[in-house]
Design a protein around this nucleic acid. Sequence first.
RNA 1: GCGCCCGUAGCUCAGCUGGAUAGAGCAGCAGCCUUCUAAGCUGUAGGUCGCAGGUUCGAAUCCUGCCGGGCGCGCCA
Length: 548
Amino acid sequence: MLQRFIEDHITQALQVIGAPNGTVAPFELPRQEGHGHVATTVAMTLAKSLKQNPRMLAQALVDALPKTMDHVQSVEIAGPGFINISFAPSAFHVLLRGMYDEGDTLGRSTMGRGKRVNVEYVSANPTGLLHAGHGRNCAVGDTLANIYSWCGYEVTREYYFNNAGNQMNKLGESIMVRVQHLLGDVSAVFPEDGYHGEYIQTIAEEIVRNSRTTVAGLSGSDLHAYCRKQGEDWCFNAIKETLKTLNIEHDVFFNEDSLYSEGKVEQTIADLRSKGLVYEQDGATWLALTKLDQPVDKVIVKSSGEPTYRLPDIAYHREKLLRGYDEIVDVFGADHIATIPDVLAGVRALGFDTDKVHVVIHQMVTFLENGEVVKFSKRSGKSFTLDDLIDEVGADVVRFFFVMRAVGTHLEFDLGLAKEEGDKNPVFYLQYAHARICSIIRKATDAGIAVNSMADLSVLTHPAELALIGLLARFHSTLERACTNVEAHSICDYLRDLAAAYHAFYHDCRILGAEAPYQDARLYLAEVTRRAMKNGLTLLGVRAPEQM
RNA sequence: GCGCCCGUAGCUCAGCUGGAUAGAGCAGCAGCCUUCUAAGCUGUAGGUCGCAGGUUCGAAUCCUGCCGGGCGCGCCA
């Protein structure tokens, strides 16, 4: 970052003019051309506490700066008290060389310092295939995990599932009836709220084909249990295959059932009880959420003896925190909003620091085709699966489109745009920039020209060159900010800007065939850009093709 | 009724945690290929930042109240 060339000088000048100890000058990037490369608002923020005119303060600060500073071109006071700083091209050259020396891991950060973070995402129960809307959770979760990992955290990618609930029983029943039909038992009645997807029939057919004699010898609950297990395995397999095509692989598949079998649910309820937060009423067990500043108490164990989802969810978070994670990220769809405060309140009541838990809630997805909303229903049998979506637009586009918007906004997924393999599609724009650079490097290599690590960068003075370097210099902080804010979409925005800056540079500044020093320096700059683009795309789970 | 999210150009969205004349991409208009990939570049046009108050040197950003859209609000998960 450019500001590093003046930070220390400003800090010292602040001392001189009597700013309170520890005052840190905030820097920002002026939007407006002519307002310098970086600006600080410190004079204005200080004006209040020192009860002085901000412009006078700015003047005093500027006067306290050394007459000349390395790499600094000009320092100007503007507007109500901004201090605008412009840097000499040499500042850009120093930054560029530093980035080149980072090599293939350009942009990597150590800010995580090996802290452990658990990112939970996807977490669909194995009762069917992932539908297209699940793509957002998959892409956001995996990208966040990539970002954490890139920023020096030790990441566990976790998938939480439940294979014991009502929904699983319905799956088993649905398959069982199909199997019975295939075996000639026409009296079997399909459950009213069973699963209608085509895959149910597929599973049933596979069961009959592969284990006809086994199922023929089973009946009642045995047959049901068999079908349920077969269904679970089949669905999980299919889900994992889908994830694999998106380049997603989890480290841990956490079965909710283990919370029961290992006594962790019991322990959780006992812990809550010992804190006086559990009581019995109407035959059910309640969690006294009102004692935790929540609006109403909620049932955690039904009168039937079955726990509600709240209890295992609290137990699960307790379990993750006990596993020693420094940070926990939960990626949920908007339909989970209501459950989160309860669970966090419970976890907090157990004495855990819920500041460690980042809940990323993404809004729903609408698919558009020709400007019209594509309707699809889970139960109708004609579903729009994530596999369908990947087949239609490709894995790269799926990953990019699902993370390119802030999670808080309702996402419109334009299938027409996504399918377009051309200039309108933002994914291709980025990949094209990368391929273009590779092409040049390839051509250079063919001509016996290698990227010269000793290139003389001082010839890089064209506005397009400096703009590109300036943008590259923000790569590192863009990634760190994405990590700190637990947001992925800003990387998409950044890469778009980077590609645009490269294309402009490419247009204005001839690389191959330029005079030797220019050719060397520009090739060097192109190579650094290539690495940034490649690493950025990789974080997003998007391929960086060398040729298009 | 209550909780959370959203409201910025015709459309889809950014806006670096309160800064200067609010930015991109599509779509529109006008240009740029005998040379490294035109899947590109350049220019132009497009705005009461939902509305009304408040906080202060300064608000799209923070607070309050409305209006509009989405998702939820079970002894379902």
